[in-house]
Amino acid sequence: MSTSIRPAKLADSIAERMEMLILEGSLRPGERLLPERELAAKFDVSRPTLREALEKLEKKGLLYSGRGGATHVAAMLGDEFTGPLATILQTKPETTADYLEFRSIVEGSASYLAALRGSDVDRELVHSCFLKMEAAHGKDDPSEEADADADFHIAVYEASHNVVMLHIMRSLAEMLRGEVFYNRARLYQRRGVRELLLGQHRAVHDAVMAGDPLAARASAEAHIHFTHEALQEIAAADARLEDSLRRIAGEDGHS
């Protein structure tokens, strides 16, 4: 049995601390770290020590150097995960329904856990995200509202305090923002739809704030089901419009 005890190397301790921040999701993928000099000052260590810590994390793939020597937090799930998913969705648009089915399970569970576990700080964030949504709604700014919508859901994932779920769903949320799954602007352009969506987010918000897990799950599931149905309605309406346009074009051709 080895009984020797040595103090941890400073660089190792810093690397561990930063790794923990990445794991818990406080350091987010894509974020750019402070310049080395400032980081070294924050940790109160020499620059060579700091550089050693950063190199360790780069070797693990957790950080990468970008242009101009800036260091960024790496994506947790790379192209290898999101790439094939994007391909399936592009080649088979009906996969959107699968995505929403998956979301309704995860969203319901995440909201349940958020209501159960969310700290006062988590709740504050959920609340401020909702206020931003409301403000964007009042300003009649669909793209800002859609963005606030995505932030709201991420805040709920954070409040669920499950890091596996958080990292997976954050990656998917980025794809959602990238319009991989469906065209969110089209959803938000419909005035009536936006009213209903806001009301659904309010229901999730209220349940999480009140610490009511069952109500949180039910309202989150209802929200995703509604989204699914609204998208189907929009697709059907588009198809009808195309039919009409073709008919009109056809009639023109005859005259």
Binding site: K60, G61, A74, M76, L77, G78
Partner: peptide, 11 residues
């Protein structure tokens, strides 16, 4: 899957 292993290594 070396790239996806960022999360894997972390976990």
């Amino acid at each position: 899957a070396p790239r996806t292993d960022v999360l894997a290594n972390l976990l």
